[in-house]
Amino acid sequence: MSLRNRYIAAAAAAAISMMGAVSAMAASAYDFTFQGIDGKPLPLSQFRGQTVLVVNTASQCGFTPQYKGLEALWQRYRDRGLVVLGVPSDDFGGQEPGNASQIKDFCEVNYSIDFPMADKTVVSGSGAHPFYRWAADELGVLAQPRWNFHKYLIGPDGRLVSWFSTITDPEAERVREAIEELLPQPAPPKS
């Protein structure tokens, strides 16, 4: 191996090590930034003080109808401090083949989605976005996404509180209860 190639290999190893270290040093979800579906940075720190449900999504999956439940959660709890964040991913079954514009159009036309969306993101394996590597470190291997529509719940302080598997409907009672426990704003009085 030439000196140049050894230098390149060493630099690449250092960069990979540094990315892992950044993930390990993260104190909260607020330390991470996604790229928004609009191409602009989407820092999780903008949601500081709110409860965030991060969901890896896909447009051509048997679970795609969960978009309806995610939008319902967003509409029901947004005024009390819930943010639903969709993170499109093509990691599982190649079920998110579109580009950002196509994904955005699909979500708006078919499910009237208006909650924040990231651009297509890798959520599994060694190339996973740092947020997903951190989440695996925080909650363990069982909490890693194994398919589309895996859900992470982040408390207002930025710590990971829980996760819900793909098959857990977004409007399931246990999801709603977990969200309600974390909402920074109280429920409006019943009339």
Rank of each mutant, 00 (worst) to 15 (best):
D38S: 13
G36R: 09
S23Y: 01
Q35C: 10
A15C: 09
F34T: 00
D31M: 05
M18V: 00
S28A: 07
A10I: 15
A11M: 08
S23E: 07
K40S: 12
S23L: 01
V22S: 11
S23R: 02
A14F: 00
I8F: 03
D31R: 03
A21C: 14
A11Q: 12
A14W: 01
A14V: 01
M19P: 07
V22E: 14
S28L: 06
A24L: 09
A15N: 13
I37G: 03
Q35D: 09
A15R: 08
M19L: 15
F32Y: 02
S23F: 01
M25H: 06
A21T: 15
D38Q: 08
A9N: 13
I16R: 15
A29V: 02
Q35F: 10
K40D: 13
A14D: 05
A12M: 10
G39T: 02
A29S: 07
S23C: 03
S28N: 06
A24T: 12
V22C: 13
A24D: 07
D31T: 04
A11H: 10
D31K: 01
K40C: 10
G36I: 11
A29Q: 00
D38W: 11
A9P: 08
S17Q: 05
S17L: 06
A11T: 08
K40W: 11
A26T: 04
A26G: 07
G36W: 05
